[in-house]
Amino acid sequence: MTDTGYVQALYLACGVLLLTAVVILWRRELAVIIRVFALQGAALAALAAITAAHQGSAELWAVAAGIAALRAGVLPWLLRRALVESGQAARETQPLVNVAASLLAAAALTMLAYAVSQPLVALAPSPATQAVPVGVAVVLIGLFVLVTRRRALSQLVGFLLMDNGITTVAFLTTEGVGLIVEVGVWLDVLLVVLVLQILTTRMRAAFGGTDLDDLRGLRDT
């Protein structure tokens, strides 16, 4: 792969990542959100694959394959299953902040990410590190989704969004943090999602829904 091709492919993948994050913020239907999330997973896998191709590293190819399986396959599948279980009533997210404001916030967060990432770029300027702000922005948008979305499932998506962003940063800066740690991280993420999914089921049994605003029993006021 040529250098320009590599750079273009890299930036394309990063663009898709950021775009999908914004779309997740934009759309209300959970089914669409999950599909977009799968697309983001694929973009992330592509990013890994591009890096692998550029470096010619077998280990990175394996990592890319793992990412594709986990983030474009297993996790969206788990989410979809949870969505099916939850029935018709819970198909839409109900943001605490309306969509227009959310998008504005996303724009501001992206700016912030860009500003914050300057030293990261400055440490080792390269095409890959130039794209680091995208990863940071995805992390911040993910956190924003966690804070403002009221469905259990959309919080799950928000968490995964953060995780995708972090993985992006990892790839863009240092091509990963070593296989053992990488696998450990994946395992943890997977387990967290599983746990949250089981808890969603229990929540539905206990509360009759997955609206997080119902979770107000434990408080001091």
Binding site: V116, P119, R219
Partner: peptide
């Protein structure tokens, strides 16, 4: 007691706003 009103969004919000504030401070101070 109002600080712990049971809303998970508010709880996460504490972290979110702190993080944003912290990042802004880092940007400003650099």
């Amino acid at each position: 007691r109002g600080l712990a009103n049971g809303s998970v969004h508010r709880y996460l919000g504490y972290g979110f706003y702190t993080l944003c504030g912290l990042l802004i401070v880092l940007v400003v101070l650099r």
